[in-house]
Design a protein around this nucleic acid. Structure first.
Length: 990
RNA sequence: GCCUGGGUGGCGGAACUGGUAGACGCGCUGGAUUCAAAAUCCAGUGCCUUCGGGCGUGAGGGUUCGAUUCCCUCCCCAGGUACCA
């Protein structure tokens, strides 16, 4: 074999591993470059061809940067805590640590085959105690800090305590959820427990009763980003709201910085927008509506007024009612006797609705009058107070001032319940819908009359503040993130409880390792699995009990990029000198599915660690590229579940009959006959059925029979793509081999031995039986081919279906390149002389294009350029050593194994190509003295003419018009105009 | 509904700042080589055509000497998001 990729790739894999070729040096005179892949979760299914797409791209880029003289940090590790391993543990009783280790080994083996230039000495695993010791430590820092809005950063809690001691909490501008004020004396008078409770409402991670997404099927709570369309992201189980005592992260404190920080980083607009929407900043005013003093005999003077948040204070004169969330605390107190019953009923109905129902029920308008009234702060008029579930308790103050003329939901609500709609817009018709644009002129609104909306907003806020009805306010949609999970396979909290007060475990006792338990299930009392652990099973046990929750999946992945800089440091999570050198990630490649989870949490923790001055940067990932999904090509067949009655007379000539009622049979239809309906089932299908029954009952076929089909359920089912004979035909033997249930099924072919399937492109997933692993391709074509082919498929960011049809083309390219270096006997044969002009032109054209393409992450066009280059050099019969050596370096990021091999065959030292110099582009070789001008008439290219580049415009014009070809196109007319763009085109306008 | 991408041959895709639309690869057709096959090599391959040419980048309009590229209107596909006041 001329190009023996198996041997070559094996040799170089071993060489790289033995020589630690890709070891990254901490500290260097070279400039640094940090290329990071998103942390993989090592699932049991192993890698499919979609996973390495991003890894290949990042590896190519890392190798490119090394060639450019950068000191490159390119590490890999595993996000190895998580639900699937634990679910598997529950089913099999195996310790999740064991399956996790096995899965990691599988991943590693698959990655090694592809020839990535990772520095494996830096590997980290979130589930290893050496790693999660520091996850626990960071948790402790968060616990020990509060957010000072004045300084706009996190500050140690001890400073807060000093302030409380000196002056109470009145002068503190913090992100908190403590209600009320206290003085220095009052603080000092508090018990330890009381102080602890107060501080809890200030800490950046805190324990509180909060409404959480409880997923009964998974037995745990989920963060907002883990709930998709009202069901769990993993498994699709229903999720309900539940009030639970949980650790939370006060990410709200960082809302503004998470928002503004987006402007400093180079991410796609799509991800930035998703984060902006998730944070959901809105500016407006909080306005206080006092309660109407009520009818005679009632006294609600004592009740708090209703505070609302509005982004449109300019429309305050359009308020014709108020709406409170059904859960609003004031509802019961203000509801009048007359409405008590219907309000209670409405609340009951609302509480029964799940989050999902509420979402899917948007069109349905519901609400209930409370009978109470508020007082309009400006007009002094009475305003009805309603409750309605379109107002969310968890956003803003859980109450709105309804302005039906300016808000569609308010408009719908008012129409539905016949409430007055006041028009406060000048010259705007609101009879059909609300007017929600902010470009109207305000009317009917006292001091706001005549002002355009935008100006009116400012004026209104000013007036509201002046009169003391409220103040300007910024509201965020972002909610604090729940940080507790009722699961086993996660980081234990460094927390113990004494008299139900949480205490932190001291640094010296970290890590708190996962204790052994008898089962990975909750206890009978519903406590998380860790509650099963014996006291002695804990490596540290303090107080009355340890914290039984574990941390969520995103804990470990929020800071892992820092640990790669200093993976074995036992004294710190990362040494300051090292993080000062490596700084933040220059290029992060991964999927966009983490937009509102990992990518937001990692930014949050980074900003926090920056505030405490542990790291020198605020944004973890400077540039990010989101690779598109590789889609699978699923195969389907039509399944029919048949229920039927059958009669057979005179079996085996014995006169006995056979009868079955309600018999069942699975039938699979070839694509060509899949359209068949129950009513048009013909005799031949029935005959097939009858034959099957005979076979099953071991009786001979009889002539006298009848079948009545009673039920017919048809659906499409996936078939495993490895059971296909070719693109569209199924191998029936293999299908029956694959699954036992198919052994008894009937397969209806459309021709003799032809069973066709339907093919459809969809997400690649184990459950769709359309997964292609990289392993087979590595074996058949080699890693270099796989690497180049995955890049060649198309732009990195785009999703594309996986199809191995073209892989031969890429493989042939590598062989063709190999042949440039070798003669017919596969011996290296090189021309040591000066390269030809043509060869240099080809080479430098390629250097320019490949370099430019890499700089703009256009990996697919890079591959094309190599093909063009090799085609041209083959045509030129070029085997010039200088040219081929430069080409070898150029190709090495894409196809490192073959490049190493050729590099050595050119006479270079093994292992040095990775640190060679990226070829320098020299424009001189591309300089032309003439250009072949496309000559177009009215913009259509008709023919070409070659002119010297230094020819003047006038001269070119003359030459073109004089050319005999032009005569034909001019049709005897005079050209109106001739445009000559030197070095580009000529356009003649007729 | 809103936000973000995207629509180019039989297929994956190229054309970076407006300047030869379809590079490169697959597939397909014909040929060479071969006992044969694989591999390799050569030629062709957007559509239509009366062989002059005409039409072509989701549709329609516009700007321009010239538009896949810029502007307007609309359609379709993918992803995200959804009572956020």
């Amino acid at each position: 074999m001329e190009y023996d990729f198996r041997q070559i790739e094996k040799n170089w894999r071993e060489f790289w591993a033995e020589n630690k070729t890709f070891k990254a040096e901490d500290f260097s005179d070279k400039p640094k470059y940090y290329v990071l892949d998103m942390f993989p979760y090592p699932s049991g299914a192993g890698l499919h061809v979609g996973h390495p797409l991003g890894y290949i791209a990042s590896d190519i880029f890392s190798r490119y940067k090394r060639l450019q003289g950068y000191n490159v940090l390119h590490p890999m590790g595993y996000d190895s805590f998580g639900l699937p391993a634990e679910q598997y543990a529950i089913q099999t009783g195996q310790h999740p640590e064991k399956t996790t280790k096995e899965n990691i080994a599988r991943y590693r083996g698959q990655m090694d085959k592809i020839g990535f230039s990772f520095d494996w000495d830096r590997e980290v695993r979130t589930s290893s105690p050496e790693y999660y010791k520091w996850t626990q430590w960071i948790f402790k820092q968060l616990f020990d800090c509060w957010y000072n809005k004045e300084a706009d950063k996190a500050i140690r809690i001890s400073e807060l305590v000093s302030i409380f001691e000196a002056e109470g909490n009145t002068g503190v501008n913090a992100e908190h959820d403590f209600e009320g004020t206290f003085s220095s004396e009052e603080w000092k008078a508090m018990s330890e427990k009381e102080q602890s409770t107060v501080l809890m409402s200030y800490r950046l991670t805190y324990l509180a009763d909060s409404w959480v997404n409880w997923c009964p099927a998974l037995g745990t709570v989920l963060a907002n980003d883990e709930v998709v369309n009202g069901v769990s992201e993993r498994g699709g189980h229903p999720v309900e709201q539940k009030l639970m005592r949980q650790w939370s992260m006060r990410i709200k404190a960082y809302a503004e910085r998470l928002l503004t920080g987006l402007d400093t980083i180079d991410w796609t607009d799509s991800i930035k927008d998703q984060q902006r929407n998730w944070i959901g900043k809105s500016q407006g005013a909080s306005v206080i509506f006092p309660l109407w003093r009520g009818v005679e005999g009632e006294d609600n003077n004592e009740l708090a007024p209703i505070e609302v948040f509005t982004t449109r204070p300019d429309t305050i004169y359009g308020v014709s009612f108020m709406v409170l969330a059904p859960e609003h605390p004031l509802v019961d107190q203000i509801t009048t006797e007359e409405y008590k019953e219907s309000v209670a009923e409405y609340k009951r109905q609302a509480s029964l609705k799940s989050e999902r129902d509420r979402q899917s029920d948007v069109k349905n308008i519901s609400g209930q009058n409370t009978g109470a009234f508020a007082v309009h702060p400006f007009t002094g008029e009475k305003v009805q107070i309603w409750i309605g579930d379109y107002v969310l308790a968890s956003y803003g103050t859980g109450a709105v001032m309804a302005v039906p003329c300016g808000d569609q939901r308010d408009w719908d609500f008012a129409k539905h319940f016949g409430i007055e709609i006041i028009n406060i817009f000048d010259n705007v018709d609101i009879s059909e819908a609300a007017y929600t644009e902010k470009d109207a002129v305000i009317a009917n609104s006292d001091f706001l009359n005549g002002l355009p909306a935008k100006k009116a907003i400012k004026t209104a806020i000013h007036e509201i503040e002046k009169q003391g009805f409220g103040k300007g306010k910024t509201q965020y949609r972002l909610r604090d993130a729940v940080f507790s999970r009722q699961r086993y396979w996660g980081e234990p909290f460094p927390v113990y409880y004494k008299d139900e007060i949480p205490h932190l475990v001291s640094d010296a006792d970290l890590p708190i390792t996962l204790p052994e338990v008898d089962k990975y299930l909750p206890t009978e009392d519903g406590e998380p699995p860790l509650a099963r652990a014996e006291k002695s099973a804990w490596n540290y046990h303090g107080g009355d009990r340890m914290e039984y929750n574990t941390m969520p999946g995103w804990a470990g992945s929020s800071w892992y990029f820092l640990r790669y800089m200093d993976p074995n440091n036992e004294g710190q999570f990362v040494a300051r000198e090292k993080v000062d050198y490596w700084n933040n990630v220059d290029l992060y490649i991964g999927g966009s599915e983490h937009a509102t989870g990992h990518l937001l949490y990692a930014r949050f923790w980074t900003k926090f660690l920056y505030d405490l001055d542990y790291i020198p940067f605020e944004e973890p990932f400077q540039k990010m590229i989101n690779q598109g999904m590789i889609l699978g090509n699923s195969a389907f067949m039509t399944e029919v579940k048949l229920e039927f009655n059958i009669w057979m007379e005179d079996i085996d000539g014995s006169g006995e009959s056979h009868e079955e009622t309600g018999a069942e049979q699975m039938v699979y239809l070839s694509e060509g006959v899949s359209g068949v309906k129950q009513e048009d089932v013909e005799e031949d299908l029935k005959e097939i059925l009858m034959n099957a029954i005979c076979q099953r009952n071991d009786i001979e076929v009889v002539a006298d029979w009848s079948i009545e089909i009673t039920n017919w359920t048809k659906r499409l089912v996936h078939v495993y793509i490895n059971t296909l004979k070719n693109q569209e035909e199924l191998d029936l033997d293999q299908v029956q081999e694959w699954r036992d249930e198919f052994k008894d099924a009937l397969f209806v072919e459309e021709e003799e031995d032809v069973f066709k399937v339907r093919r459809e492109v969809e997400k690649m997933s184990k459950s769709k039986y359309n997964v292609q692993t990289p392993d087979d391709l590595c074996d058949d074509f080699g890693a270099d081919t796989l690497r180049m082919y995955e890049m060649f498929l198309g732009p990195l960011e785009q999703s594309k279906p996986w199809d191995t049809k073209g892989i031969n083309g890429v493989h042939n390219f590598l062989r063709k390149m190999w042949r440039l270096f070798h003669n017919e006997n596969n011996e290296v044969s090189l021309d040591m002389g000066e390269p030809s002009k043509d060869a240099l032109k080809t080479l430098h054209k390629t250097i320019k294009k490949v370099g430019d393409d890499l700089d703009r992450f256009s990996f697919n066009t890079g591959v094309s350029n190599f093909m063009i280059c090799v085609n041209e050099l083959t045509d030129q019969k070029c085997n010039n050593k200088h040219v081929l050596e430069q080409l070898t370096i150029l190709v090495s990021p894409y196809a490192p194994h073959i490049a190493e091999e050729l590099w050595v065959r050119l006479g270079n030292q093994a292992g040095t190509i990775s640190y060679a110099k990226f070829p320098e582009f020299n424009e001189e070789h591309l300089v032309e003295s003439s250009h072949e001008y496309p000559i177009s008439f009215n913009g259509k290219m008709r023919f070409k003419l070659e002119f010297p580049l230094d020819m003047s415009k006038d001269q070119i014009e003359k030459e073109v018009l004089a050319n005999e070809n032009s005569m034909k196109w001019l049709e005897g007319k005079d050209p109106k105009k001739v445009i000559v763009v030197p070095g580009k085109i000529v356009n003649v306008v007729i």
